[in-house]
Design a protein around this nucleic acid. Structure first.
Lengths: 237, 237
DNA sequence: CTTGGTTTACGACTCTCAGGCGCTAACCGA
DNA sequence: TCGGTTAGCGCCTGAGAGTCGTAAACCAAG
């Protein structure tokens, strides 16, 4: 940090900074990530995350969103947060590229049109990925699964309004295991995360009691307050 | 990500990448962060985080540790993890500098010698900080407090061996509120995080029952497994 | 040696909340 | 009207955290 001037001239070194986006959605009972297939060397044919170099004047988050717009309508994005920064000198074979990855989420009902080289891939059966992108997808999935359990992040995966059983399917696909509708409803209700819209869904062909339609109260991330242990002492006593 | 060559030449833009370290320790019942006072412009006189430009061949974590070594004996570091990356174009007045911050922790018994411009500062009463470093310290403190409650991260703040009441003081200082020794012992024991060494501490002048001496079982980060809600269904039933 | 003061250890109780189960409600179609 | 299906909800259980009180184990002073 000493010698700002000297250090600034330092930037003629051959490295660059990329912003990447791990965009996840739930579809057909599976958790999927948005990837595009590289046409040019290196790593031609392999599947990569959307992204690219940061310009001199933009922030990393804005850069990720901007470059993502080439692959998907960014208005579909319901959430975007910084994930992690990868800096292994060998992560790219041709140059020193530091990459900051963002986690983006798309609601289950959105199905934006995609370019020919781009597709949603099941995170359980990823094709051959370029560079360290497969590992970055793993980090994104882990972050999503963790935050689903102690935040209201489900708002970013669910449709604007939904029945509890539909929400259960979304959570089950995202988490990778079954969840009980009863428990999901109670947990999200106790946290004040969801509320009934007042409407009911029409039953299917087989009949059944019409389901109450819910929505998330907030579309911003909120952490469940006493989400773990070692709380402060109770104020009354 | 298209046109690698073109993009690589892109790096002649005037920006650089720094690695910063938020190093925290508990001392005298307070949570402190390691800062150094800038002698040169810009922001002369203000207090800044240790760090500086990343070289062309090193990783960010190694870079943070290397540049930290100029301020403190890095052997004292008991933990180092990536915190976040700041990219506001205006965060530095003279140049475009993207900075990746790391969170470092030092045990309570370590008191490494420091250069003249460097000091431990109480995080509750920070002096005027340079750039966005004050905000980055806030992020580091928040991360520490969060992880203390659902991981065994206390190992990085505590001495190698300790009594429960001593550990209670460390946790209270780090968390910023009082914790009960009874509860702390039960929680950390149930998680299998600490174990008795077999020794007992000698009582002080006033007497008192000699305390059992404990140590952390592991000095690597371990997450408490069912740390929150929406667990997978029980396998037996 | 006794007594009072001090600190630690630990069992007992309560409270919160997640997970599971089963009954009832409310719809369909035949 | 009746069987089938899905949703809602109350009740029970169990895990784990927070609190409190008591016993254990030391010191020092008289």
């Amino acid at each position: 940090m000493t010698g700002e001037r000297t250090a600034i001239e330092h930037t003629s070194e051959a490295y660059r900074h990329d912003a990447l986006a791990v965009v996840l959605r739930v579809n057909g009972g599976r958790l999927e990530v948005l990837l595009w297939q590289r046409g040019a060397q290196p790593q031609a044919g392999r599947w990569a995350l959307p992204g690219g170099p940061v310009t001199a004047t933009e922030r990393l988050g804005a850069s990720a969103a901007r470059q993502l717009a080439a692959k998907v309508d960014v208005r579909a994005l319901s959430h975007l947060e910084q994930l992690e920064t990868r800096s292994d000198p060998d992560r790219h074979p041709l140059a020193r590229i530091i990459a900051t990855a963002y986690l983006g989420l798309v609601p289950a009902d959105a199905d934006p049109t995609l370019p020919a080289d781009t597709a949603w891939q099941d995170v359980q059966t990823l094709p051959a990925t370029a560079f360290d992108h497969g590992s970055i997808v793993g980090s994104g999935v882990a972050r999503l699964r963790s935050k689903l359990s102690y935040t209201n992040l489900g708002f970013a995966l669910a449709e604007p309004s939904f029945t509890i059983s539909r929400l259960r399917d979304v959570y089950a696909a995202a988490l990778g295991y079954d969840v009980s509708a009863t428990n999901l409803q109670r947990v999200l209700t106790r946290r004040n995360a969801i509320e009934p819209t007042g409407q009911t869904a029409v039953p299917g062909r087989a009949g059944g009691r019409p389901a109450t339609v819910y929505r998330f109260r907030s579309r911003a991330l909120e952490v469940t307050d006493p989400f773990a242990t070692l709380r402060p002492p109770t104020a009354f006593g």
